[in-house]
């Protein structure tokens, strides 16, 4: 059963600040969904109804917007949610090997969550990091220039509960 939802104190503050940035309430919809997702981890029907009410929108509108955008989770993702890029530059740099390794070595499959709830994987379209392909995002962290060995280090670090760091961005 989906729980009742209300913004936490911190979320409420952020929400009120957000409203001030726009001349219409509707414009605060994407930000409000982000605030809710940050608080709850994913977007549930009660959240959509709550946001609809807060912004004077129909729940159907909120629902259709939420469906349209791929980054709003409609079910709980893994503790580490991986987006592996599957677009052209990453394909030219052998992203399939990375995908194969995630699956064969760790049982991390596209569109699925591992049974222990640690990892989920989606194949994403171009992540805007084609110069450092192949690329994946782990939660909000870009992991670039992936090799099998680098993937192993990343997955092991996740299993140890470490926080991942992005490589420094180079000038080129």
């Amino acid at each position: 059963m989906d729980e009742e939802f209300a913004f936490s104190e911190a979320s409420e503050k952020e929400f009120m600040e957000t409203l001030e940035r726009y001349p219409t309430k509707m414009a605060a919809l994407l930000p409000a969904l982000w605030i809710a997702q940050n608080q709850n981890g994913y977007i549930t029907p009660p959240i959509m109804e709550y946001i609809a009410e807060r912004l004077d929108l129909s729940p159907v509108h909120v629902y259709s917007v939420c469906e349209f955008y791929t980054m709003y989770h409609k079910s709980p993702p893994g503790r580490y949610h991986i987006q592996l890029c599957r677009t052209l530059s990453c394909v030219l740099c052998k992203m399939e090997d990375i995908q194969g390794h995630l699956e064969s070595r760790y049982g991390i499959r596209a569109g699925k969550k591992t049974e222990d709830g640690m990892f989920s994987l989606t194949l994403a379209e171009c992540l805007g990091s084609c110069g450092t392909a192949p690329v994946m995002r782990v939660n909000d962290v870009y992991c670039e220039n992936l090799t099998i060995a680098k993937v192993d280090r990343i997955i092991e670090a996740c299993k140890r509960g470490e926080t991942l760091e992005e490589d420094p961005m180079l000038a080129h």
Partner: peptide, 16 residues
């Protein structure tokens, strides 16, 4: 929004 596949220059400007 930098979404055109192959494009990654706005990300550099925004971050660097």
């Amino acid at each position: 929004d930098e979404g055109e596949p192959g494009t990654f220059k706005d990300r550099k400007i925004l971050q660097l």
